[in-house]
Design a protein around this nucleic acid. Structure first.
Length: 422
DNA sequence: TCTGGGGTCCTAGGACCC
DNA sequence: TCTGGGGTCCTAGGACCC
């Protein structure tokens, strides 16, 4: 029987910022999404002010000023590197580890045969804090869903000291489930929550005890799996090998809307080019590409339109030129004048490992293209991202995101390295 | 003035086949 | 008055996750 530990970094993005700028410690901090649009992370002090997850930044500006909340643009380069460090520390404790998201990992501790899993977790927690500067919380349970609930309580209850063990503690588990609102259960989103509330199933304990047939009727098999997990059955297993990606997407909401095909084409070319780079980085080739454009769904006065089209590649590819070609081709098929477009994106589909792809008559010209792409990637790696690009991407283009509050890339750029003053 | 981005899995329904 | 049943594959959309 597996023993899941869910290790989750507390307020991850805000904590990363604090590691390199200790002046932020003790202060309310929020981290913002693309375009500095909404709040995607909050320090405890910011949560205490009632700032909700996902709230549009402009709506809380008065609050920000009044309480001197520090607002930062998100610095994904920094967060990704810090995430890698946390995983490295955790891997030194056990190889049975699944990286679930940028700030969460599931571990299976059962193979370690620990006499005191709680103590082991407290030690892991202290080590991550010492070696990375990041505070984490750890929940223990016999299923992933239960370890999620344990983790939530580890964060909420100060006396837990960052670790909550629900495995083989039936009484503690009952009261934990009773105090967990049903909408907080992993896998229960807003839609299912509404249906369950209508049935009087308000908390995780009631969900656990609900008849399977009823749950199947309102939520299908997905819901039944959640119920079984709450009962302690490990339906979801540990997935140590990250599954191969099936799609790869680059999209952005523009800094402001545009009616010009030229603007949107520039953006789509840039997205296509970035998807191609990412594809090569991951050692993949794509079998098809889709491009989508849409107007501003929040602008009630604007005429709305959203369109997409896809094209297969004859032979799966990761060649930037080919991918840009397909993206501009599909864009011209879906383009219609007279709309103010606010968002666009490029999706690569049917991904397969690069060396699995079919060979064809044009293999040698393909090899030249591959060498060209390898050179391109190397130059960009050496001289900075964007040193060589396809097409002209003006820095002032309207589709560029606004990120006015970006912190330095402390750990990945020599020029941003923190300096210790003596 | 201002509302994110990148994914996965599941299901229902249509097209098609014998 | 009457119009099968069962299977597969594909796609779009729903729901959810962080």
């Amino acid at each position: 029987m597996p023993l899941f530990a869910l290790v989750d970094c507390n307020n991850f993005y805000a904590s990363c910022e604090r590691v390199f700028d200790p002046r932020l410690i003790g202060k309310p901090v929020v981290v913002l999404s693309n375009n500095d649009g909404c709040v995607v992370a909050r320090s405890n002090e910011a949560k205490a002010l009632g700032i909700a997850m996902g709230v549009p930044f402009f709506k809380i500006r008065p609050l920000i000023r009044e309480h001197r909340v520090v607002a930062l643009s998100s610095n994904y380069t920094l967060y990704a590197d810090m995430s890698r460090r946390v995983v490295e520390v955790l891997s030194s404790f056990t190889p049975d580890l699944e990286v679930y998201s940028i700030d969460e990992s599931f571990l299976d501790l059962a193979p370690l045969n620990l006499s005191d899993p709680g103590r082991f977790c407290r030690e892991m927690r202290a080590t991550v804090l010492r070696w990375t500067g990041l505070p984490v919380s750890i929940g223990l349970g016999s299923s992933k869903t239960l370890s999620k609930i344990a983790n939530r309580l580890a964060k909420k209850k100060a006396e837990a000291g960052g670790v909550m063990d629900l495995a083989s503690h039936p009484v503690r588990t009952e009261s934990a489930l009773a105090s967990t609102p049903v909408g907080e259960v992993w896998g229960i989103g807003p839609r299912s929550e509404a249906k369950l509330l209508a049935l009087g199933i308000t908390d995780a304990l009631r969900l656990r005890n609900a008849p399977e047939g009823l749950i199947r009727k309102v939520m299908g098999n997905v819901g039944v799996r959640t119920v079984l997990e709450l009962r302690g059955m490990a339906i979801h297993t540990l997935d140590t090998e990250p599954a191969q990606k099936q799609t790869l997407c680059r999209s952005r909401t523009f800094g402001r809307a545009t009616r010009e095909l030229g603007d949107v084409r520039d953006a789509v070319v840039a997205f296509a080019s970035r998807t191609a780079e990412k594809l090569r980085e991951d050692g993949l080739v794509a079998g098809a590409l889709a491009t989508f454009i849409m107007t501003d769904r929040f602008d009630a006065d604007a005429r709305q339109r959203s369109a997409s089209a896809s094209d297969p590649f004859g032979i799966p590819t990761n060649d930037t030129q080919e991918i840009i070609g397909a993206a501009t081709r599909t864009l011209s098929r879906i383009w219609k004048d007279g709309y103010a477009y606010r968002k666009a994106g490029v999706l690569l589909l049917d991904l397969v490992a690069g060396n699995d792809r079919l060979r064809d008559l044009f293999e040698s010209s393909r090899k030249r293209a591959m060498r060209r792409m390898a050179a391109l990637d190397e130059i960009n790696a050496r001289f900075g991202h964007g040193a060589i690009t396809f097409g002209l991407s003006s820095l002032k283009a309207p589709w560029r995101s606004r990120t006015n509050r970006l912190s330095p890339c402390y750990t990945t750029e020599w020029t941003d390295l923190p300096v210790v003053q003596s």
